[in-house]
Simulated scan of single mutants.
Amino acid sequence: MARRRKGRDISGWLVVDKPAGLTSADVVNKVRRAFDARKAGHAGTLDPAATGVLAIAFGEATKTVPYVTDAMKAYRFTVRLGAETNTDDAEGEVVRTSDLRPDDAAIKAAISAFIGEIEQVPPAFSAVKIDGERAYKRAREGEELTLASRPLWVEELLLTGRPSEDLVELELTCGKGGYVRAIARDLGRALGCLGHVETLRRLWSGPFDAEEDGVSLARIEEAGDPEALDALLLPLEDGLFDLPEARCPAESVGRLKNGNPAPVIGTGLEYGEECWASHDGRAIAVGRWKGGDLHPSRVFHT
């Protein structure tokens, strides 16, 4: 018989305003200990030097992580022109330099090539797997890596400021799997001046916003007792923001929770469309709408 994991059986989302200097895993571990949570995970890694939205799911909310991970995200970042590093950010070693400094008009013109469906090669120092091993582990050992490009949807890339000749401020809105460091690297190459990320902040991720929802680690530490901590949580249903909702009659609740198809009440749904069913405002299951029945793929026990 498997041993039961220790900790409180809580469910919901916590939006941490991640500080610089910690890995995403460090933050999850700190938060899990503070809440004494049995189960926790995050939706989208941030580099250690980055700040901003790190959405952490507890308990049954971890079943909604894929929907937040797949969602659009927005970043504000600063690119330092004139130098390329081996990590594509300020943490790495400078490998090439340039004295060229393009003006704002040239930067805006170059940005247009980075909007829409683009191909992006991830940084060598990234969590991409090569033959089952993380790329960053090989890169740290000095191996020269050639990573395959990946498609990325860029909704928006804006020049928002120019603090100095060497610094450019940008805001990016993109889909799943985007590397801001790669945007900085490739933009620098396109301009002929080279570049790397100096500062990076995730402004929002799916339904979660740093300014409206973000909670600092200091505030979590100050909360202390479980009741005060739990008051910081957002409902697990927030993770289903991008799916249509159907209503689950009382007589269907048991069947869905047991993983069986059951009638639900939906409006405007197409056959085979993914949706979630609620009863009294609580998520019961996610599944496919088929002729008035929901065929569950995920069920929630809260």
Rank of each mutant, 00 (worst) to 15 (best):
29 N>V: 03
124 A>S: 12
95 V>E: 12
142 G>E: 13
92 G>N: 11
108 K>N: 15
107 I>H: 01
23 T>N: 08
124 A>G: 12
41 G>L: 05
65 V>A: 08
39 K>C: 01
76 R>G: 07
92 G>Y: 07
64 T>I: 07
107 I>C: 03
33 R>T: 02
105 A>E: 14
34 A>I: 06
154 V>Q: 05
76 R>H: 04
55 A>S: 11
148 A>R: 11
66 P>W: 06
109 A>H: 05
115 I>L: 04
28 V>G: 05
73 K>C: 15
98 S>R: 10
132 G>M: 07
53 V>D: 03
133 E>P: 03
96 R>V: 11
30 K>T: 03
99 D>E: 15
41 G>A: 07
107 I>D: 05
49 A>S: 10
136 Y>N: 13
97 T>G: 08
134 R>M: 10
20 A>S: 10
69 T>N: 13
63 K>Y: 07
59 G>L: 00
107 I>R: 02
120 Q>G: 11
122 P>S: 13
95 V>W: 09
73 K>P: 11
114 F>K: 08
29 N>W: 00
33 R>S: 04
29 N>F: 03
107 I>L: 09
143 E>L: 14
110 A>S: 05
20 A>C: 00
66 P>L: 11
102 P>V: 05
152 L>V: 15
123 P>D: 13
78 T>F: 00
119 E>Y: 11
122 P>W: 05
83 A>F: 09
25 A>L: 10
77 F>S: 01
147 L>I: 15
63 K>V: 03
70 D>Q: 14
69 T>K: 06
93 E>Q: 13
41 G>S: 01
158 L>A: 15
63 K>N: 04
51 T>Q: 01
115 I>A: 04
30 K>N: 04
20 A>R: 01
16 V>Q: 03
155 E>T: 09
84 E>W: 08
142 G>R: 08
51 T>Y: 01
